[in-house]
């Protein structure tokens, strides 16, 4: 996913840079009496229309795949309660008591089955981001005090997954982490 995003970006950026260079050079070479583009209004119209259509297609393809609708009509086999706090993640099969928060030492989840993370925070905003074995970000949600975000996910491959905090939460933000084992 991220690789294709980077390539898409580099291609688009390169194309824009080329257009600007080309336009600049055309001005450098232009004689005194050259009149530029013949019918700018019409070109502008087509340019805008094409852009509009491209963005429209993009929106209608991507919006239905937003994370809010992920696996919405299936029943998860496991629920993991996650309470983030400065600077750790507590995770448990049982709901976590905010007054006496304790998590389990390790969490094991089945592969290729739907699991649901119920993510909240006991203090400030945190992020709950799941990284796969090759340290690629595969899914995330925020941990907000007073609210529960439900992130549903199916892990494809067994192995060790890392959880990192992706919302700045104070001076130990960069070491706030946890892990999951997928069997």
């Amino acid at each position: 996913m991220q690789n294709s995003i980077l390539i898409l970006f580099l291609v688009l950026a390169g194309m824009s840079a080329l257009v600007f260079t080309f336009v600049y050079l055309s001005s450098k070479k232009a004689g005194k009496d050259e009149q530029g583009i013949p019918n700018p209004l019409k070109t502008r119209f087509w340019f805008l229309l094409i852009l509009f259509v491209i963005l429209g297609i993009f929106a209608s393809v991507t919006i239905p795949r937003s994370p809010y609708f992920l696996f919405a009509d299936e029943t998860p086999v496991r629920v993991i309660h996650v309470s983030a706090m400065q600077f750790a993640f507590l995770m448990s099969d049982k709901a976590i008591d905010p007054k006496n928060p304790v998590g389990e030492a390790s969490i094991e989840l089945p592969a290729n089955k739907l699991v649901e993370f119920r993510v909240t925070s006991l203090d400030v905003n945190h992020g709950f981001a799941i990284y796969d074995q090759s340290n690629r970000l595969i899914a995330q949600t925020q941990a907000m005090p007073g609210y529960v975000n439900r992130l549903r996910w199916k892990f494809k491959e067994p192995g060790n997954y890392t959880i990192l905090c992706l919302e700045y939460c104070g001076m130990a933000h960069q070491v706030m982490r946890a892990s999951l084992t997928i069997k």
Binding site: F20, E34, G36, P40, R44, A59
Partner: peptide, 27 residues
């Protein structure tokens, strides 16, 4: 998402395009 997409349209279609038109093959 839609508002963010739309915000780019007038910018690209009017400002950027105008700058490019003003330069293209114009001394």
């Amino acid at each position: 998402q839609i508002a963010s997409y739309m915000a780019s349209l007038p910018a690209a279609g009017v400002t950027v395009f105008s700058v490019l038109v003003a330069v293209y093959r114009t001394s």
